[in-house]
């Protein structure tokens, strides 16, 4: 089974995922949450790690043929402050490979910092693909491909008012299915872990609670696959950081299929939106935080979408992901689960 061959043959390479200036200014871009042709906004994230006020300008240059307005914006950042600066895509075109190269330039007097970053459109088009062990119905998704130790991972999402759907294609030598008896000290099976975080909870939530919906998808030697619930917004930190048995936490009405094809493991999952609908509020243009970890303990280890998206390491990282029996967490661990994501209309 092939999915958009042109897309999958290309590789997203971050030229400078987390740019940090000697003078203490960090710059990066957020993912684009709406297809470029609809004239979205793109955002530069700036953080002042220095001890003094930063006052300068930021200029953003997009891919060839793009026009951004304004061309530059003033930036005033107190010590320790982070800001998102919006630039309007007055003219932009969708790239078949979902790769967009930007150059961010900031200057303060004669001090100039310039960084390049490749970003992607992180958006779930409206659709309810069947979870049937086929990838054909996913052809109108906006796949994001990234590399970990030379192995490809591709993430696609869809939404409807009733379901959230995810397809993760993992290039790997073998698939190790779920083992209920696995322990943290003896990681044995492959999995895809993902988190959905309402923006409000990320910004205003109780730090002692998970503030997110988090799930784990695994292959099942006796069935099409299984999906477990790892955390809900009100799950206490002590609980989600402590591995506990997965079997009792199976998601009701989840549709799952995990299968292998031509050296790639496919994890397809569709979840009912109802338990999340009041906080995530699925509708066109809504944004939320999302991220995916691929657990490949006998191969690349953890593959992190957040790292591919250029997120900076932060204090939030450790609490961003639930522990579960059989999971292996290297140091440094994965980035926070905070890739800005959007719900968009169907592509046509």
């Amino acid at each position: 089974m092939r999915m958009r061959g042109a897309v999958y043959s290309l590789v997203i390479v971050s030229l400078a995922l987390a740019a940090e200036a000697a003078e203490g200014l960090k710059l990066r871009m957020d993912a684009i949450t709406v297809p470029p042709a609809t004239g979205p906004l793109v955002f530069v994230v700036a953080h002042n790690t220095g001890d003094t006020l930063y006052q300068g300008q930021v200029r953003l240059a997009g891919p060839e043929g793009w026009r951004l307005t304004p061309a530059e914006r003033p930036l005033e950042l107190a010590s320790g402050e982070t800001q998102r600066l919006a630039f309007n895509v007055a003219e932009g075109r969708t790239a078949a490979d979902n790769r967009y190269e930007f150059e961010i330039t900031a200057w303060d007097g004669d001090q100039q910092l310039s960084r390049q970053q490749e970003i992607f459109v992180a958006s779930a088009p409206y659709y309810r693909p069947p979870i049937d062990g086929e990838t054909t119905a996913w052809s109108d998704a906006i796949p994001i491909e990234f590399q970990t130790e030379g192995r490809s991972t591709t993430v696609s999402t869809h939404w409807s008012r009733r379901r959230f759907s995810l397809l993760v294609a993992v290039e790997e030598d073998r698939l190790v299915p779920f083992e209920p008896g696995a322990s943290a000290s003896d990681p044995r099976f492959d999995a895809v872990q993902f988190a959905i975080t309402p923006l409000e909870m990320a910004e205003e939530g109780d730090e002692q609670l998970a503030g997110r919906y988090e799930f784990l998808v695994v292959a099942d030697p006796d069935g099409p696959g299984r999906c477990f619930h790892l955390a809900a917004p009100d799950t206490p930190e002590a609980q989600f950081l402590q591995p506990s048995p997965l079997a009792p936490r199976e998601v009701e009405r989840a549709q799952v299929a995990v299968w292998r094809e031509e050296g790639v493991t496919y994890y397809a999952c569709s979840l009912p939106f109802l338990p999340m609908r009041d906080t995530v509020r699925p509708s066109e243009g809504r944004e939320f935080y999302f991220s995916v970890l691929v657990h490949d303990p006998d191969g690349t280890g953890i593959r992190d979408l957040g790292q591919a998206a250029g997120l900076w390491p932060s204090d939030e990282d450790r609490r961003s992901w639930s522990r579960w029996p059989g999971s292996l967490w290297p140091e440094p661990g994965p980035r926070a689960n905070r890739v800005r994501w959007g719900f968009c209309s169907s592509l046509y």
């Binding site: 509708s283 066109e284 243009g285 809504r286």
Partner: peptide, 9 residues
Amino acid sequence: CAGRRGRLQ
């Protein structure tokens, strides 16, 4: 525009 609505908390 539905996209405008999507921008609002």
